[in-house]
Structures are given as C-alpha cells and as structure tokens.
Amino acid sequence: MRIEHRGRSPRVDPGATIAPGAIVSGDVVVDAGARILHGAVLSGEDGEVRVGAESVVLEHAVVRGRAGHPAVIGSHVMVGPHAHVNGATVGDRAFIATGASVFPGAIIGEGAEVRINGVVQVNTTLDAGAVVPIGWVAVGTPARILPPDRHEEIWAVQRGLDFPGTVYGVDRSAGMDEIMRRQSAFYAAHDDDRILD
C-alpha cells in the first residue's frame, strides 16, 4: 500500500516490487530491482527513506526516516525479517539480519553485517566489512563491538551519544510525559494520510 503523508508520496521505480501488505508511506524512494516484501513498512514521515537497487526488505522489517537522519539503504542490501533501521545509513552489500536494530545517526559501512538481534546504537559508525555478532551491540565511533552482558562498558560509551536528543529531540532530563506528549502530537499527522493504492 502506498500512502501520501504530509503531502509527500512514495516514488517507486516501475522495476521494483512492493508486495501486497507492505506499507510505503511519505517521502520514500525505491530504486529499480528493489523488493519490499509482505508486512514491511517504509515510513518517510519526516525524513526520507531510500532503498537502493536490488536491495530486499523482508517481511515485517521497519525502515524509518527521521528529521536530520534519513534512512538510506544502499544497493544489494538485505534487511531481514523484523529488522529495524531507523534514521541510519546502510552501505552497499551490507547485511542486516533478522531482528537487528540500527538507530538514528548510525552508519553501516559497505559489506558490514549486523547479525541476528544485533544492535547498532545511535550515532555509531560501523566500519566497512565489520561484523556485529548475534545479539551483540556496536556503540560509538569508531564502533566498539561488545556482548550484551557488558552493559556498563556499553553505557559508558552510549551515555555520550545523546540517544534522547537524537531520537526524540529532548534533553536527557525530559520525562516520559514530555516525550510522549511530543510523540502523540507528531503522529497525529497520520490523521490526514491519503491512501494512493
């Protein structure tokens, strides 16, 4: 399903495939040979989403563009089922496996792999060819790749990456009431969406 959001309509190359049940909303560009499968969501709500040539976004993956952080998927990239790429740049020939999460401001280098349930934190740069093992966390620039049980080391780096500011545009001291008030107001713009096909 293609949806006009905030006056922006998806631009899909005739040689691309949008499977039934996939949602492509707002400022989205899908290049030739790209395949967006059932249940996947490409959401260009306030930042562009671009999917490069012959890339595949599998079932129930979410690719979301953000203000100041477009979601750019290079060419020949696999985004696995239930993966989440949010306001990040993914280089050509990268592999984002099932359940992986890539946060705003992250850069995934060419040919890098984020394996099953791997995490690339906000404002983190993963070098070309690097691998985030199953369930591990990449954090910082250049990325430190750590197992999830080393939370204190991850937090020592992550604290300075400004997750609340990058993701929600608020200071770390903001409470959930302020964050959710802003989020609720932002997402109310979907009240004016228009289904194109």
Rank of each mutant, 00 (worst) to 15 (best):
W155E: 14
M78T: 15
G87A: 01
R144N: 10
E4P: 04
V157T: 15
Q183H: 14
D31W: 06
R11P: 01
R8Y: 03
V51K: 03
A100T: 04
A188D: 14
G111K: 08
G7I: 09
H5P: 03
P14M: 02
M78F: 14
I73S: 00
E178V: 06
A189K: 03
A143Q: 11
M78A: 13
V85F: 09
A112Y: 12
G118M: 01
P70D: 07
A67D: 11
L58D: 02
A34R: 09
E48I: 00
V119N: 05
G160S: 13
I107L: 11
A128T: 09
G135F: 05
A112M: 05
E59L: 12
E152M: 05
R2V: 02
G118T: 02
G109H: 08
V157R: 09
R144W: 01
G175Q: 07
I145F: 13
V137H: 06
V24C: 06
V28D: 02
P164C: 06
R93Q: 12
V12Y: 06
P81R: 15
T124M: 06
G111S: 14
E45L: 09
G175M: 01
H60S: 14
I108A: 02
V131Y: 08
V41S: 07
L126E: 03
A22Y: 11
I134E: 13
S9V: 10
R35M: 07
N86A: 05
L196K: 10
S75E: 13
E54W: 14
A67W: 10
I145H: 08
V132A: 11
V28K: 00
H76D: 02
G99K: 11
A71E: 03
A188I: 04
R172D: 15
V139P: 03
H151T: 11
H76W: 05
P70L: 00
H60R: 15
D13F: 06
L161C: 13
G99W: 12
F186E: 03
R159L: 15
P70E: 00
R181V: 00
V62M: 12
V63Q: 01
V122H: 10
G135Q: 05
L58E: 12
P164Y: 13
I145Q: 11
R172P: 04
E59H: 15
F103E: 14
G111W: 10
E110I: 06
V62Q: 05
A53R: 15
E59K: 12
A19V: 10
R182Y: 04
P147A: 00
G33S: 09
R150F: 03
E152C: 00
N86D: 15
V63T: 01
G109A: 04
A61G: 06
L196E: 08
S101K: 08
I36Y: 06
T166S: 13
V139I: 07
V122F: 07
M180S: 07
A88R: 09
E110R: 15
R11E: 15
